[in-house]
Design a protein around this nucleic acid. Structure first.
Lengths: 124, 124
DNA sequence: ATAGATGCAAAGGGTTTGCACTTGA
DNA sequence: TCAAGTGCAAACCCTTTGCATCTAT
């Protein structure tokens, strides 16, 4: 049975406030503005619990630590800024992935990560 | 100036023998069959050196440790089998990535990872 | 001879876990 | 009440680094 604690509420609130995929460290730092005593361990445990409960989804980006975002979004991919290292959800997809699949292989899913510089970092 | 040592020769040989992206640990284990005293540090240093020299390329797959493969291949992406966890190079690419890029962002590169089951695993 | 490379062990960084204490239902 | 959750610190795993020793050139 999953209890409602102020730590978890604050962590959930963080995800609802900041609408982009967050790493465990980002979650810790942001949530500590509300609960300064929040520990890393609790963050990791909350991420695991909320992911298992389906409230969060794990976002895997090549070469980066796992990040998490609220579940229930439609199919999307990510743009990762090489300057600030933040990930942004991008909508839409592409055709032709089936064409790339080797003969005899079964394609079940795909990941697309766009890389470059975000608009905010371009201004500096 | 890059020296030619038996450790590096053995590591290069590993990549030439096993033609798929390898993790540092895989490189260590495979190469230790030739040089049992080979240390992890040397593997990591060799991977860095060979990557810097352009002989190896780093392959990043979401949710997985970095792997390395011989450079010089043309633009390609990967198919990762969810059963055997091996990565296979796939050729070709797709259009429409620029269309997915948010306004004001600069697209510099992209990764595509296909996921499913490889032909070998489908037979079992 | 000597700068580059190696092996070992220690140090880092991120993630997980054991344990005593706290707290929600 | 009392199991679930928390905080702390230690443990882990993977990767990097310092240092004395070795070796290719």
């Amino acid at each position: 049975m999953v209890r409602q604690t102020k730590q978890r509420e604050a962590i959930k609130n963080t995800f609802e406030t900041v609408d982009r995929p967050l790493s465990p460290t980002e979650v810790l730092e942001i949530t500590q503005t509300c609960i300064p005593t929040l520990s890393v361990a609790t963050v990791y445990r909350a991420l695991a619990t909320l992911t298992e409960a389906g409230w969060l989804s794990r976002v895997e980006i090549p070469g980066e630590a796992s990040r998490y975002e609220r579940s229930g979004k439609q199919h999307h991919h990510f743009f990762v800024c090489r300057i600030c290292d933040r990930a942004f959800a991008v909508h839409g997809c592409v055709d032709g992935l089936a064409r790339m699949t080797p003969t005899g292989f079964t394609l079940e899913a795909h990941d697309i990560v766009l890389r470059g510089v975000c608009s905010e970092c371009l201004q500096d």
